[in-house]
């Protein structure tokens, strides 16, 4: 089964004259209940998000006493306080480093393995493939305790390198699974021609096959980025140093400690900083992102 998230087909058939029969109510009236239902869920989805953004500009007093009001004067100071004093800026940077490194490593290793297994026949090919793919069906919780000690013994606890390696190790199986099918579907002729021209195996992969696989790489790259950016369990266990907290981890710690200090406005600002960039990037590239995300669920 293959599905692509494309906009619904626009008018595959000519406009149906039956719609204009005078006996029936105009379409806008018939679809009104539909729009009410759709709008209702939009409000349920968007309202809490919007409320958090608005609250991030309010004073503590306004937040506590008037949860529904708009800020009388916007307080950009909340954002500055969250960014510097509450270390959201540092957490953001840590997330960028770890996720950037892990994503690059995942895509490189994942595409190499997927390509080698999809385009070369050799003994053990299937075994290696299933070794990777089987790992997708194991809950991370099962590995958690031994993983902690493996990382500790390697001296990688609480380091960028440690998180990058572990993130990549857990993202590679899905990447292999997804790109394996993708590389199989590419035509063989182009690679054969490149071999005849004297290209090495590595050159065929990097210069010919990888560019041809770009749509698949983009889809799985977006999927991996969001998965890694939102990772919480792995850093919680493997990254105990508060200076190296990633964003989700830092925000969770903050929501406990700020709650005691009751800096609500700073916490709302931190929350908004954590969610706004992702949402803005999504609105800009929404079609690609939805396609990439849903591709994961449809084989």
């Amino acid at each position: 089964m293959t599905l692509s998230v494309s906009p619904p087909r626009s008018s595959p058939s000519p406009p149906a004259p039956a719609d204009d029969r005078p006996a029936r109510a105009p379409r806008s009236v018939r679809t009104l209940p539909v729009h009410v239902a759709m709008l209702a869920w939009s409000v349920v989805t968007a309202l809490p998000l919007l409320w958090a953004v608005v609250s991030s500009f309010k004073t503590d007093d306004e937040i506590l006493n008037h949860p529904w009001s708009l800020p009388s004067t916007p307080q950009p100071g909340n954002w500055a306080r969250a960014w510097t004093e509450a270390s959201i800026g540092r957490y953001f940077f840590n997330s960028l480093v770890v996720v950037g490194g892990a994503l690059a490593l995942t895509m490189l290793l994942g595409s190499l393995v997927a390509y080698a297994l999809a385009r070369y026949e050799f003994r053990g090919n299937r075994i290696i493939y299933y070794t990777f793919v089987a790992a997708m069906f194991f809950p991370v919780f099962l590995a958690l305790v031994p993983l902690f000690f493996v990382v500790q013994q390697l001296g990688l606890l609480g380091t960028y390198q440690g998180l990058i390696l572990v993130y990549a190790a857990y993202a590679v199986p899905f990447t292999v699974f997804f790109l394996h099918a993708f590389f199989r579907s590419l035509p063989a002729e182009v690679a054969e021609a490149a071999f005849l021209d004297g290209c090495s195996h590595g050159a065929v992969f990097f210069r010919v096959m990888l560019p041809m696989a770009r749509p698949g790489l983009v889809a799985v790259g977006i999927f991996n980025f969001l998965g890694l950016w939102n990772q919480y369990l792995l850093p919680l266990v493997l990254n105990p140093d508060p200076d190296r907290y990633v964003l989700a981890q830092g925000l969770a710690a903050l929501s406990v400690s700020q709650g005691y200090r009751s800096d609500w406005s700073g916490l709302f600002a931190g929350l908004t900083i954590a969610m706004l960039p992702v949402l803005i990037a999504y609105v800009a590239f929404q079609r690609h992102i939805r396609a990439g995300m849903t591709a994961g669920a449809v084989k």
Binding site: W41, S42, T45, A46, L49, L226, W229, N230, Q231, Y232, L247, A248, Q249, L251, A252, L271, A274, M275, V278, L279, Y282, Q286, I289, R290, M293
Partner: peptide, 12 residues
């Protein structure tokens, strides 16, 4: 709009 929550970390 419906897709918004999917992009957020469960922590957020």
């Amino acid at each position: 709009i419906y897709f918004f929550p999917q992009l957020l970390s469960l922590v957020v």
